[in-house]
Design a binder for these strands. Structure first.
Lengths: 410, 410
DNA sequence: GATTTTTTTCTCGACAGTCGAGAAATTTAG
DNA sequence: CTAAATTTCTCGACTGTCGAGAAAAAAATC
């Protein structure tokens, strides 16, 4: 359904545009903003004056003039305009980061996760305590926290911050909105971890390729298997989605997966699955909860020495991944695939299977192999994705509510 | 990448909005347009005056006043504002329809397709002749044809009107843009047939459910298998895509498909595939080019009488479809599935397999079975999808180019 | 038949936004 | 100290939307 436009909306959009180029390029002068946004100088004056009055941006102190003419006055976000808390939930720990409005990391710590199955209730309590702790350490008032951005592996509701299914809690849902709402006014968003990796890679790619960038998928290999897809939206930036890839059906009546279903991709390509088939344990054995990486390293070493059974285990994993990716490509469009996560250290063993698995589908035979690259530093990408996404959400909210609020009350 | 907004853009968007409610609801009075669009009466006056001057809409002749007060003046599209040619390519014929700007069918005929494999070049020539013929029969000047909307089964390029792969011509690409460009100034768009079915069903659904509508998939069963997905876009209407579903990998190293690959869904669920397995022909047999529906009806009759082998063939087909749909759902979100096409007459035989195939995946076990409905009249839906899509494209183009042009020259 | 009521459409002034041109500000070069 | 260069700011013109009320036109009422 289309919806009406108004002149006020124009100002809102252009204000967000100004803030976004400030994000992308750091502190900028009036003229540069005008160049980047294609807005006229007069408009930039109006918008920046408004944002400055609303205490969202500030003029930086004069810097040594670097040419002749009137010296530039750089504009930048006010760090203290608001704060963001990033919560990264991984299988063994929860990391809390406090970030200011300019994207600068202020404080960070991790808390080990107790592996008891007591579950979701206790976990939520721990997250609430962690949030209060990082707030307390930094002496920032709670109202100044504008957004809490959470990520986890697993399946996430697309509209509300609800963790629908996760490797740790299974189908025990966690609704972060209602868990945090009485205590926090901040907006809460939740994203799949691999989605954020894809978002970060997509943003990087867009800087390099500009308008040529179309889409990209990130595949994360580890104890579980995740996939994130970024597509260039019509106009409104990027469109991202995190399918339930790890638990997509690979083979009907196949190996038993942690999720209780048979034949998931993860039941062939997850770390526990590789372990299982390397030890020739029957495929309907209940899988191990947690596999030390050292264990898998040993299997990989044997495979590299030429032992057939462990090599076959990796090959089977690759095939499952390749078949799954080919199915994904059948449903979307041709796009490059970036592989991240701890599993990349076994890429040499997985590669042949992946390529063979991909090659078994019509779309790949027709369009050729997609580009596959291995990307390290998954953790950095996750955090980068959080920042990209969260800060642009804040920019929008602040323009919609903040500027008008100040205008009305001042 | 965000892009700048301007007041002129506001007018454009609101003009398109006015035209779109006129499409949806037929001839409307000033007041009604204001109600639907939430634009003020003054704005409606300005926009409609402009559109009327540009000869895009017109005031209808006074109708018998149906209440007291000043009688309403209905506004409607001018039929002669422009014309649309719809070309529906099916396996045995090509149907040409001439439609005016108000969406009214003016002329229509079908031409049999010669089944010779001489191929794409001759086919393109036939289409060009068909287009000239329908134009000639109606005595409309060629410049008045604003859009040619083509549909076919198969895989379509998402940005240009290029048929990348089709059941008939295989990988022999057909670029309708370059084929028609010297002769026609009209814009040319090409869509997958099942995509249009999905678009039409989505539009119907949106009228019923309004903002509650989220997404929907249409599955077309016949000689080939097609899938279209409609999702409610962020703001810009609906977002639609036509995956290469029929040739998504069902089972590695499976039955041989028409496309030359092994294990496609179509190699189990296409009409020729059902025939093949009902006659217990080996799965690597080169499939029949064309299967008369009567042939399949006979097999279905036997299956309904309780013969095991034909029943098994339908069951296998259902399993392939169900597995494929479950994979689709793993990659998107839960959505209802509408089944159309000639294959719906065997739905009683397919159903159990489809449901079993769906149930084998994690996502379905978790979220439950998606709603499945059988929808007849695929042909009507295809045409309806053409109109929805083509006329809104015309509306946009006309506002962007037309109004400004008139303004500038007048 | 004249007047009132009701409903719809049109018009006017206020307000918000963008833009181009030129004025003002401020530094370096000579 | 003046001229040139560069950046920022300001002003008037233009386009857009909106609310309120005037104008139009038919039915209802007296």
């Amino acid at each position: 359904m289309l919806t009406k436009s108004s002149t006020e909306l124009v100002r809102q959009r252009n204000s967000v545009l100004v803030l976004s180029v400030l994000r992308r390029h750091g502190a900028l002068a009036h003229t540069e903003i005008s160049d980047f946004t294609r807005l006229s100088s007069a408009t930039i004056s109006a918008i920046t004056a408004e944002l400055e009055k609303a205490q969202i941006i500030e003029k930086s102190e004069q810097q040594p003039a670097s040419g002749r003419g009137r010296p530039r006055v750089l504009l930048r976000q006010r760090r203290d305009c608001g704060y963001l808390i990033v919560v990264i939930i991984s299988s063994d720990a929860v990391q809390y980061s406090l970030v200011d409005y300019a994207g600068k990391l202020i404080d960070r710590f991790s808390e080990e996760r107790s592996h008891d199955p007591a579950g979701a209730v206790r976990f939520v309590a721990a997250v609430r305590a962690g949030l209060l702790r990082i707030l307390d350490r930094s002496k920032i008032s709670q109202e100044k926290v504008l957004l809490i951005s959470i990520s986890s592996k697993g399946l996430v509701n697309s509209t509300e911050p609800v963790l629908v299914w996760s490797p740790i809690f299974g189908s025990e849902q966690i609704d972060f909105e209602s868990a945090l709402r009485p205590e926090w006014q901040a907006k809460v968003i939740l994203d799949n971890e691999t989605l954020l990796v894809a978002a970060a890679l997509g943003a990087r790619e867009e800087i390099v390729k500009g308008a040529d960038f179309r889409s990209l998928a990130a595949l994360s290999l580890g104890h579980s298997v995740g996939l994130g897809i970024v597509r260039r939206g019509n106009q409104t930036g990027q469109e991202i989605s995190a399918p339930n890839f790890g638990h997509m059906l690979h083979m009907a009546n196949g190996g038993l997966c942690r999720c209780g279903t048979r034949g998931c991709i993860e039941a062939y390509a997850g770390f526990y699955a590789i372990l299982r088939s390397a030890f020739e344990v029957p495929l309907d054995t209940i899988p191990a909860k947690f596999v030390p990486v050292a264990e898998l390293d040993k299997i990989a070493a044997k495979a590299r020495q030429g032992h057939r059974v462990p090599a076959f285990a990796f090959r089977q994993a690759g095939l499952a991944l390749g078949n799954g990716l080919s199915r994904m490509l059948s449903l979307t469009e041709r796009m490059p695939i970036a592989i991240t996560g701890p599993g990349t250290r076994y890429y040499d063993l997985l590669r042949q299977g992946i390529e063979e698995g991909l090659g078994q589908s019509h779309i790949v035979r027709m369009e050729g192999m997609p580009e596959i690259r291995v990307v390290a530093d998954e953790q950095i990408l996750v955090f980068e994705g959080h920042l990209n996404r969260a800060l642009s959400v804040i920019d929008e909210d602040i323009v919609v509510s903040g500027v008008q609020g100040i205008q009305a009350s001042g």
